[in-house]
Amino acid sequence: MNLSQSTTSQISAVANSPLLWILAVAVLGVVLLQSYVYMRAVRANAAGADMTQREVFQAFRAGGVAAIGPSLAVVLVAIALLPLFGTPPILVRIGLIGSAATETASASIAAGTVGANLGDASYTPDVFLIALMAMSLSGACWMISTLILTPILARGESALAHVNPALMAIIPAGALLAAFAGLTVNELPKSTIHILATVVSAVIMAICLWVARRLNQAWLREWALGFSIVGGLIAAYIATN
């Protein structure tokens, strides 16, 4: 425990360095800059779409209000991940393309390639860096691919738009199910508390999704992962103390 706590503080020192804070805030600043330029373009050219300035503002506000619920749900998950990755890496990885599940899976797979597990004594600063690299490079691929494909798709008539639909459905779904099944099964032999956390999380998710569908509560679907994580952690805390 002492060993793992000293590596924890080493990781924390690397992950929370002032330079990374600056870069994390810069990345979020780029998002705000983009929104600012886009809004100016919409406002200046609104008449081109028979749109009034009032409608532009209404659309902006409606989009913002609709995003409050999903944003708070993401915040809950992000805070639960802070002890593992530190604040600036979480702001960048959750703030840009990707999701809590995608990033955690990437980090876990990356740690596995050097025989380490996220969170335990084998999770050294070196492993943290390998995990951060893998998450960042994977996120970069989405962005590069968008930069390359968007102009091609914009020209229309692209063969890309007619990829075999069965291929589109089967391979990614199979890959996703296999990765998460593998990662989940990998947790089970670690300890009975790992099994407990996995099962409690899975049960809470199942209940949330069932209630969301039965009572038609869409917001519950967004919050389900946050509730599952908190439930799993509370169960693990009670079991360890």
Partner: peptide
């Protein structure tokens, strides 16, 4: 004691839920 639990057990706590979500 709490952040330690969050660090060690965050992975199974995410994976159980995500697995069910994916299947559904």
């Amino acid at each position: 004691s709490i952040t330690e639990v969050a660090r060690v057990y965050i992975l199974p706590s995410i994976l159980g839920g995500v697995m069910v979500q994916l299947i559904a």
